[in-house]
Design a binder for these strands. Structure first.
Lengths: 146, 146
DNA sequence: AACAATGTTTAGCCAAAGCTAAATAGTGCC
DNA sequence: GGCACTATTTAGCTTTGGCTAAACATTGTT
């Protein structure tokens, strides 16, 4: 009773989407931490909460998880730091975000909408899709300068 | 102590992404139900579980929620039906999915990757972005026929 | 019609993300 | 240096989505 479904029904896409979701929040946090450190020298739980639009308590809890996952380091009542792994994830996330956002704007989406959509989309683009977006950006800036 | 952050830090984007996320699963389910009904005349819990790559028990639980939210109708040991609201949501989701997938392929992303990415992306594209994608598709098919 | 096989649901568990309210720790002022 | 104020953490609750194993219906066979 193998009962194999047609190709379009395979669960890979859904699995992948669910899996992405686990990383999404981690990525959002480390990205934000990197930004905050640039902007103001340190990332404090409260600032994260404010920026994310989430309660302080939630941030504390999530940071605990991120520490368990070795993405950040943290001492009580102190600012948060990224580990190497955390920095890598942050850099990656910011790169993706930047590409997606720039791409959407190049496509003609209004900047504020592009920002919001990019936030949602960035966690779901494969390397392939990112490449395609970059190609488009290069191509189109070439055209523009004619 | 207003301490207002610069525009880029406003939590709107994150809020929106979190909100989207609440609808994602509902959308996936109703889309799948619509597909199954087309393909085989009825949508059965087990088929949903299989396609989604998730256990039967999970499907039962989620369907219960969808019923509470008036997206589906269902009697024990029977197939599932979409309410009008469910049908609308499904149609909308399928439309989005189709556009995003076609768009990615037009961009040069490989079909199987396009499918997977579209699955993740479809829940995060605004009407604006969808319009832009459609515009691109029209434009590019015009070019091709030269 | 009864029973075995199969399919579906229930029960009960876990983890993650969210919240509010209460407790605790730092900081700053006198 | 102590006390009040503010910031941070802890406690404890909720919802959602996931799981496995056990209970319960349905169906099909004889």
């Amino acid at each position: 009773m193998t009962h194999r479904s047609p190709a379009r029904g395979r669960p890979a896409a859904f699995r992948r989407t669910r899996a992405d979701h686990q990383t999404e929040i981690a990525e959002d946090y480390v990205e934000l931490i990197a930004e905050l450190m640039e902007e103001r020298g340190e990332a404090r739980g409260t600032d994260i909460a404010q920026r994310l639009g989430v309660s302080n308590a939630t941030v504390v809890k999530t940071l605990k998880r991120l520490q368990d996952e070795q993405l950040i380091r943290q001492e009580p009542y102190r600012a948060v730091f990224l580990t190497d792994a955390g920095q890598k994830l942050a850099a990656d996330g910011r790169r993706k975000h930047a590409i997606v956002e720039a791409f959407l704007m190049a496509l003609g989406v209004k900047p504020d909408v592009a920002r919001i959509d990019a936030e949602g989309i960035e966690h779901h683009v494969s390397a392939d899709t990112l490449d395609a977006m970059e190609r488009y950006l290069r191509h189109q800036s070439t055209n523009k300068s004619d």
